[in-house]
Design a protein around this nucleic acid. Structure first.
Ligand SMILES: [Zn+2]
Ligand SMILES: [Zn+2]
Ligand SMILES: [Zn+2]
Ligand SMILES: [Zn+2]
Lengths: 158, 158
DNA sequence: GCAGATTAGGTTATAATGTTGCAATTCTAC
DNA sequence: GTAGAATTGCAACATTATAACCTAATCTGC
């Protein structure tokens, strides 16, 4: 299941792994992980909360990067295309992918209290797509599911 | 599975049924289906394509209704609360629910070509939620999935 | 019917999110 | 080095959604 973010872990390792995989993937695909792109990826990975495009702007500005909407959207689009980040559409926000490289349906659990998002792999995901194809005669090209609720910590606190 | 919109059907019946159920539901819940709310519901049901809030504004204006964003968003919020419409978050658009009244996870297939959206019921949907709860210790309160691809007609045309 | 409470709607302004178009720069391949 | 491609800078704009504040309609208990 990707990994469990609710367990205590060395988060620097999360970031390092993400950047390292990104480098490899870019190498493999013959595309460039430019400074802006890498920095955006790191900022998206700063924690396990989905981050809005406009949240990134001031942080990039602080560091002397150009900071205008197109800059960050272009970087995000690049990362999305490579599957390095996902978009949580119900939040208009972006989050790092825990297993980039593999083309997969995306499924996230988002805590409505603390905002953290946990990526999930579920075999049933593809069942749903196949079922839709069989029952409706459609072709499914993309699939997203988003679960909203309370994470273990926030559930306990309530 | 709700109904199959790709099969030929009398769409006026879709609209009539939707309005009729809305009336019943409002009656039951002791809330008011005002003219604006009803008209917004009808417009959302005008076809099986998700419709943006701002698409509704000019149509309401034509008919002499007030036409400002808050008006239509208030009506849509009302309909969402009652479960009479769903929001397709990846499109920022709204579509009528085919089985209002029952609280259910929402699942839609959206054709990227013609834009029509088909609501789906799938037992596997709740499996995914239960699985997340079991594996992560979370509480799932809301679940949306959106499938994107080609409908039978658009698939054939391609 | 009427007073007070509740709900719904009107109006204006503004926030939040995302895009287009074009010029300037940087990189890559030859 | 030079041509072509990819990337970035920049300004304006488009789209989606909400805040704040007030007025009007409707309901409720008398
Ligand atoms: Zn981490
Ligand atoms: Zn939480
Ligand atoms: Zn119909
Ligand atoms: Zn279609």
């Amino acid at each position: 299941m990707s990994q469990n973010i609710y367990k205590h872990h060395d988060h620097h390792a999360c970031i390092d792994t993400a950047v390292s995989r990104a480098r490899d993937l870019c190498q493999e695909k013959g595309v460039r992980l430019t400074p802006i792109r890498q920095r955006v990826l790191e900022l998206v990975w700063a924690n396990h909360k989905p981050v809005g495009a406009y949240d990134l702007l001031p942080r990039l500005a602080e560091e002397g990067f150009n900071s205008a909407p197109p800059t960050v959207y272009r970087a995000l689009d690049f990362l999305l295309d490579l599957g390095l980040v996902h978009r949580i559409t119900s939040l208009n926000a972006f989050i790092g992918c825990t297993h980039p490289g593999e083309d997969h349906p995306t499924c996230f659990f988002v805590c409505r209290q603390c905002g953290q998002a946990q990526e999930l792999d579920s075999a049933e995901m593809s069942d749903i797509a196949r079922q839709a194809e069989a029952r409706l005669g459609v072709v499914v090209e993309q699939q997203i599911t988003e679960l909203l609720g309370l994470c273990p910590a926030c559930k306990g606190a309530a």
